[in-house]
Every structure is written in C-alpha cells, then in structure tokens.
Design a protein around this nucleic acid. Structure first.
Lengths: 224, 224
DNA sequence: TGCGATTTGTCCGTATGTATT
DNA sequence: TAATACATACGGACAAATCGC
C-alpha cells in the first residue's frame, strides 16, 4: 500500500518533489501573484535550494499549467481568465463522465460507504463555514470515481487538472476576501452515483458541472 | 503564425527541447530497448549534452510516460503490456469523443477538405506499403478533431498520449519486423465526421477504437 | 537605435545519499 | 558489513538572449 502510493504519487521523497510541492503551495495560497515573474535565483534562495533543483520542479509546474515558461524570457505565474475556466470545467466534465463509465460496475458497499463519508466531510466544512476545507473536501469527493475507475491515465489526467481548480478557488477567495463558490452539498450527485442508472448520472454531471461553472463565473462578474 | 507555433509547441528552441525530441526519437525507433536502464552520464555523453540538460528532458519524458523514474534508482524505458494498451485505447476513445463534441459545430468546407486530404495521405501510405508513414498519417488524421476543437487542454492531453501510441506501433514493428496494424482506410470515419449526426460519429468512434485495439492485441497474440 | 545590466540556458566539478553487490 | 556504482544536489562559471535606459 505504501509502495503503491509512492509509485503513483512520487511526492516527498526527493528534494525536487518537496520543492515542487512547496512552490505549488506558494502559488495556490496566493503568496505568488498571478502574472508575476519568477526569478530563479531569487526563488531558489527563498526555498533554499539550488537553481538546478528549482528548475526541475518548475518544469513540472509548467506541465500542470500553474507556470508559463517562455524560453530565454522566464517563468510566470499563470493568469487564468474566464475562457480558461470554461476549458477547465468542460474538460473536467468529460474526464469525470469517463471516470463514471469506468467505475460504474466496480461500485460495492464499501466504496459507497466511502463516498458517503466524503460527502459528510464536505457538508461538515460547509456548515462550519470552512471555505478552504470545503474546497479540499469537494475535490476529495470528486476523486472517488477516478480512484475507483482503476484507470491510471484517467487518474493522472485528473491529478494534473486538480491544481488548476484549487488555483481558481484560492485566487478569487484571496482577491475578494470572501468565500468562493461554496456549493450546496452534493446530495443529488451522491444519490445518482449510488443509483443504478449510469445515463442519469452522466446527464446530472453535465448539469452539475455547468452549475459549478456558472456559480464561479457569476462570482467573477460581481467584481469585474 | 510562427509565434503561435512556438507558443503551443515549444520545440527546437532550447537545447533541452531538442534533447527531448532526440531522446524520444531514440525510444520510438527502438534504439533504446523497453525495460532497459538509462545511465545519465552515458546518455548525456551520447547526446553530447550536460547531465542537467538531459535530466530536464527526461523529466518531461517521464510525464508523457515513455520513461519511468524511480527515485535514487534511475530511469527506465517504459515497458508496455496489453493492460497499458487497453488503457491507452480506452482513454483515447474518451478524448476523441470529447474532441468531436467540441469541434462538431466548428466544421466548415475548409476543414472538411483538410480532413479529406489527411485521409488521402493515409491511403497513399497504405497502398505504398509505407508502415511508418501510415502510422504518422493516421495520427495526423486523428489530430484533425483536436485541432478543430480549439480546446487547448484537450489538445494538450492528446499530444501527451500520442507518443505512447507511436511507441507501441514502432515497438512491435521493430520486434517482429513486419508491418504493424496497417488499418484499412478511414472511409466510414471520414464519412461520419463530415455528416450531420454527432451521435452516429460518437458511436462509430467506440467501434473504430475497439477495432484498432483488437487488431493490435491479436497482433500481439501471434507472437506470445 | 544602441549599450549595459540582468537573467536564463548550459556546463562542469564535486560532495552526499541511496541502492545494490 | 563493506565497497561500488549511481542518482541526487550543490555552487560556480560562462555564453547567449533579453530587458531597460
């Protein structure tokens, strides 16, 4: 189990990996402002690592999409506009529909109880008005179908997309100093995910994601 | 146009990028045997680059999936079994269905003529018995819907998956010294892609991909 | 437009840590 | 257990490209 986690999520073992995580954290928390340039020597000093190690971490952050690297010109914190948000949500919708198609026949009592628990954790965060916790809980809830699908390419693709979602939420929460799209609990989502109609689930996913997108977009409009 | 190509496909500009392409070429052509270990000093000397530059290229090849990096143990050429092949094909099916959903309303006379041309190039390669050209032509044909979709995340995901497909085809072609799954021309695929029923297209995609997978799998069986 | 300052890209030598024998 | 081989990581160096004046 331990070795499996290390194999799929090679984090924390090497300094390069820890640097990646720390830098990602700095981006997600908003300590590094979107659009600003990262000076390698400066950031390397700040994180107390060599330039080479930092550069290796930045390459992977560029692949995720949190950084934009322009050859000979530097790396910049990714700036996300509403078009990017629409792409992320539409892609996410497609991925999650795939995930449910793959995991559908693998559901059992244990995994359903697991799903239930993840939802309850989300509900708890919402009622506690814990915005950050709610974001993480919601992502963890949606992680369920990808894990259950047993499809490594699909899971990998989702893991790459996930930081972008976190980035949005944190970005606007920081910018406007109020809770982001604190969504309603996922009752319908859960009910259908436990149900016996895959078509209904897929249809609901379209609606669910569209709702999430519109929530976030309208949230942006209130401040533009 | 030039700057756009550089922005979306950052290739050839830096030594790191050229090294990535050269190393990928060595893998795809079978010069580097799947499962074998890559010694950094040795490969760096062979490619005439520094270890740092090579490592930056290898990181991105690991993300694509052509290399497997084990911390403190080294990097190995990815070995692909039939389970990996099934994953690649099923994921590819999902991606291409997404692509057609996004590009469907963007089709026009010009893009349809473009699609036609790509198919004719493929047919030419097949009738010429040009196995390598056919592989490239087929991938270029399938590229059409991703480009037309205008969805950068989707295109990016496909671009990441594509080398894995090339890897398979080249792998077995090399191993058995005969043409890989030289598929029939994509007449039905083209006809439906030009037609006016998205549902028919999506349905055909499932069948088309399943056919491709079975062709490749049975091709493996003949030698196991 | 040009020139100096800054930064990235790239290389090298070396030291440390890990895995394997 | 010791020894070897290798990956990891560091610091300094230089050229080339970019940026700012």
């Amino acid at each position: 189990m331990k070795s499996f986690e290390q194999a799929t999520s090679p984090s924390g073992d090497t300094l390069k990996d820890r640097t990646l995580e720390r830098l990602q954290e700095l981006i997600l928390t908003g300590d590094l402002v979107p659009g600003s340039k990262l000076l390698e020597t400066q950031v390397a000093a700040k994180l107390d690592v060599s330039r080479a190690t930092l550069r290796e971490a930045m390459i992977r952050l560029s692949e995720i999409g949190l950084l934009v690297n322009l050859p000979f010109r530097g790396s910049y914190i990714r700036k996300l506009d509403r078009l990017d948000l629409q792409e992320i949500y539409s892609f996410r919708t497609g991925l999650e529909k795939m995930a449910f198609q793959f995991c559908w026949d693998k559901r059992d009592l244990i995994s359903q109880a697991d799903l239930q628990m993840r939802n309850e954790r989300l509900c708890q965060c919402i009622s506690d008005n814990d915005a950050y916790g709610a974001i993480m809980a919601e992502l963890h809830l949606h992680n369920w179908c990808y894990e259950l699908s047993g499809h490594s390419l699909l899971l990998q693709s989702w893991e790459r997309l996930k930081p972008n979602l976190q980035f949005y939420f944190s970005m606007h929460q920081k910018a406007h100093d109020r809770a982001g799209p604190l969504r309603e609990s996922h009752d319908e989502y859960i009910r259908l995910a436990k149900g016996d109609s895959l078509d209904d689930m897929l249809l609901h996913l379209e609606h669910h994601m569209q709702q999430g997108l519109e929530n976030t977009l309208s949230f942006l409009d209130t401040t533009s």
